[in-house]
């Protein structure tokens, strides 16, 4: 099976950064979608939450300000973003550190900024898929959004930045198993008490705190965007602050191994 002499003659060089980032994003999104547990978190749980909440609201009087499907869909979209940008990213990155993937990529032509952009690209790809599926389910349940797409997009981008920065921080300082446990725990706690699916007003006195959580802020921003096409600037500012805090913490603490 020997190749002729000259096969391995050096011809070194990095691919253009855009091509590297594209390769990294496509690789990471494929791996995310291949992972059964992560798919459960990304699509199945949000859809169950949506259908469950709508069904429950049909039987109970929750004092909602909108029709149940209109009330809950923005929050479920926020939940989907949170599951991917925080939980999936943290777990995947934690195991990448454990398996030496990040270290190995560290000696490839892909620069750190390229790795980060690749991860963001993968997150956005997966989120696009989640939003498509959840929106399709919601529309079949007669969802009637009065949306500003731009406001929703801005909320999703800021929410992704905030959760991704925090997810990378967790993954960068803890062992893979601890990251796995913590990322799932935080997801469940925020699902229950983070004002994602239910508006902060439903939490009584805790609502003011919940609004300042990244989950509450993203939920609120998406509700504004999809209920009335409005921009919830204060919530977007909250997300921006979380993104900045997470980014600084990650930059200071992240280690390859």
């Amino acid at each position: 099976m020997n190749q002729p002499t000259g096969t391995f003659t050096p011809r070194p060089g990095a691919a253009p950064l855009a091509r590297q980032v594209l390769a990294q994003a496509s690789m990471e999104s494929r791996l995310m979608l291949r992972n059964g547990e992560q798919l459960l978190l990304a699509v199945v749980i949000p859809v169950i939450v949506l259908i469950g909440a709508v069904t429950a609201a049909d039987h109970l009087d929750l004092g909602l300000s909108h029709r149940p499907i209109d009330e809950f869909t923005p929050g479920v979209l926020a939940l989907a973003v949170m599951s991917t940008a925080f939980t999936s990213l943290a777990i995947a990155t934690g195991f990448e550190r454990r398996y030496g993937v990040i270290k190995r990529l560290g000696s490839s032509p892909l620069p750190r900024s390229g790795l980060l952009l690749g991860k963001v690209g993968a997150l956005l790809l997966v989120e696009l898929l989640q939003i498509a599926i959840i929106s399709a389910v919601a529309l079949t349940l007669d969802w009637q959004p009065h949306a500003s797409l731009l406001a929703a997009l801005l909320a999703i981008v800021l929410g992704t930045a905030a959760f991704a920065a925090l997810g990378l921080f967790v993954a960068g300082v803890m062992r893979a198993e601890a990251t796995l446990a913590l990322a799932n725990l935080v997801y469940l706690l925020l699902l229950a008490g983070g004002a994602v699916v239910l508006p902060a007003s439903a939490y009584g006195g805790f609502g003011t705190v919940a609004k300042l959580l990244p989950s509450g802020a993203l939920g609120n921003a998406l509700r504004h965007a999809l209920w009335s096409g409005g921009y919830a600037w204060s919530s977007m500012l909250v997300l921006l602050v979380w993104a900045a805090v997470g980014a600084v913490l990650t930059a200071r603490t992240f280690t390859w191994e």
Partner: peptide, 21 residues
């Protein structure tokens, strides 16, 4: 280490190759 646990062998090799010119 140096590879994702779920990545297929040739898929991994192809990925690294795409980072090079």
């Amino acid at each position: 280490g140096g590879a994702w646990s779920g990545v297929r062998a040739m898929e991994m090799l192809r990925h690294i190759s795409r980072l090079h010119a």
